[in-house]
Design a binder for these strands. Structure first.
Lengths: 210, 210
DNA sequence: GGCAACGTGTGACAAATGTCACGGGAGGTC
DNA sequence: GACCTCCCGTGACATTTGTCACACGTTGCC
């Protein structure tokens, strides 16, 4: 593992983003930095985790929204397989609950796509140096965010609400009776102050609870 | 307008994308090309149109999803104000109907964010040279896509459905009676084969009709 | 002029949805 | 053991939603 063709202290980076254009652009952006070397790129979380196990990059830059395994799932797999790995999550929708999930997964960096491009290299350097970087806006939002008042089953039905159209379909998906589903939905709607299940599911999604 | 500090034939480019990270990365990517010069960047459609009128870039690279004016609206304004302007729309969700809208606005290029990063510069060069470039996948999808069977008002209520929770709210937003709204929704749902208005609105959105 | 399509509305009916009250059981804590 | 919360269910009820039939006026086309 002691190649000599790279400058001393060069940061070996893995990039995962399902939008090829973005990934390529990020590679171009970070390739301009003399101390950063992009060693791998992929468009899904599962491959990202696999590549990380093989290549042992110093830092992994993972998009949150990816097929096969989202950024946090990929981060968990990488953490499990590569002790001391450093992961940065990049996301478009910076929902407070997602930050919680990311921090629970021991992610070292969390930046929204609204971050100025010039800052990204610095974040990568900080993270590579062992520091953590959490976008201050998201951190503040997460701190004032309400704790999730919903039970596990209530979260389940809200999750199912996002893909199923009728109560019957939700009940079928969860192997529950329609009455039970309606009770859970009613409870969730009351807790969230929503006037229908779609609003409730949307709210829970915005908070990153589901 | 005859500055001499740039190489002959250099393509003057404007980039608009509301995600700063992406815009910066694209600037880095395209900045690597010797014949492309990024002359402006912004994060919303309204400013993009304004800047285009002032700076008269050769090509405008516009993200579709932007605040204040989406990529196509911005393209229309640019076309109206700058004769011979060339616009490329970049989008994450390549819905068939959106391509229709874009072509109706005389857009010269249409690429999804899944395009390999290396191809983008070539597309820009083609467009600058007067050619058009339409992503073949999207073009094929648009050709087999069904024509929109909905009336203007049906589209209106479906649009409102995406933001309003109840029929009453939709009716209030459109200054209609609830009965009328329900009739339109029922008609739209029948035409689209949807079992509720949210499905219908989702379908219409996927097709790019609203 | 006649006809079709569209926009707008009403009224009635059925189905889906949301609310409420009430059960019972499983699993924890004091 | 008593108590609590969560899970799962039932039944009744009011509200919302979706369907259907029908009506009237406008616009555009043959």
């Amino acid at each position: 593992m002691s190649e000599s063709e790279q400058p001393t202290g060069s940061i070996r980076l893995l990039i995962a983003d399902d939008e090829h254009l973005i990934r390529g652009a990020l590679e171009a952006l970070l390739g301009l930095e003399p101390d950063i070397e992009v060693v791998a790129g992929t468009d899904n979380g599962a491959t990202a985790a696999q590549l990380a196990l093989e290549l042992r990059p110093d830092v992994c830059l993972l998009d949150l929204e990816m097929p096969r395994a989202d950024g946090i799932e990929a981060a968990e797999r990488i953490m499990a397989g590569v002790p001391g790995a450093r992961v940065i999550i990049v996301t478009r929708h910076a929902r407070p609950g997602v930050l919680r999930r990311a921090l629970a997964a021991k992610v070292a960096g969390f930046v929204p796509k609204s971050t100025p491009a010039g800052d990204l290299a610095d974040v990568i350097r900080d993270v590579a140096a062992g520091k953590r970087y959490i976008d201050p806006e998201i951190a503040a939002a997460a701190l004032v965010a309400e704790r999730c008042p919903l039970t596990d089953r209530e979260l389940d039905v809200l999750r199912a609400t996002r893909t199923s159209s009728s109560v019957q379909a939700i009940a079928d998906a969860l192997f529950l009776s329609t009455g039970t589903v309606r009770n859970y939905l009613s409870a969730a709607m009351t807790k969230l102050g929503a006037s229908n299940r779609h609003d409730a599911a949307e709210h829970a999604w915005q908070q990153g609870w589901i």
